[in-house]
């Protein structure tokens, strides 16, 4: 995944969960912060799919439990 793609992914996280711009995304984990619950997880997935033009497999949707993991997963779909 390129730096530009990482920035794009970060901006999706920030807008979906309404984080401040200076949030440390590496510390964000599913279920441990207010806002990242199963409802907003669906919004996150749908935004990622739309912005990157990809469709994630079920296992990847369920495994995307942190920003770090999202970078790894989305990286498999984009070149």
């Amino acid at each position: 995944m390129t730096d530009d793609q990482k920035v794009k992914l970060a901006s999706i996280f920030i807008s979906t969960f309404q984080f401040p711009e200076d949030v440390i995304l590496d510390s964000i984990v599913y279920g441990e912060i207010r806002g990242w619950d199963s409802l907003n997880h669906l919004t996150l997935v749908s935004e990622i799919e739309e912005e990157f033009g990809i469709m994630l497999d079920t296992d990847d949707v369920l495994d995307m439990s942190s920003f770090h993991k999202a970078v790894e997963i989305v990286g498999k779909y984009v070149f």
């Binding site: 669906l42 994630l56 497999d57 079920t58 296992d59 949707v61």
Partner: peptide, 14 residues
């Protein structure tokens, strides 16, 4: 609506 969206995601092929 959310439940339908989840079923669609869970039904995707790996």
């Amino acid at each position: 609506r959310t439940a339908r969206q989840i079923v669609q995601i869970l039904g995707r092929k790996p």
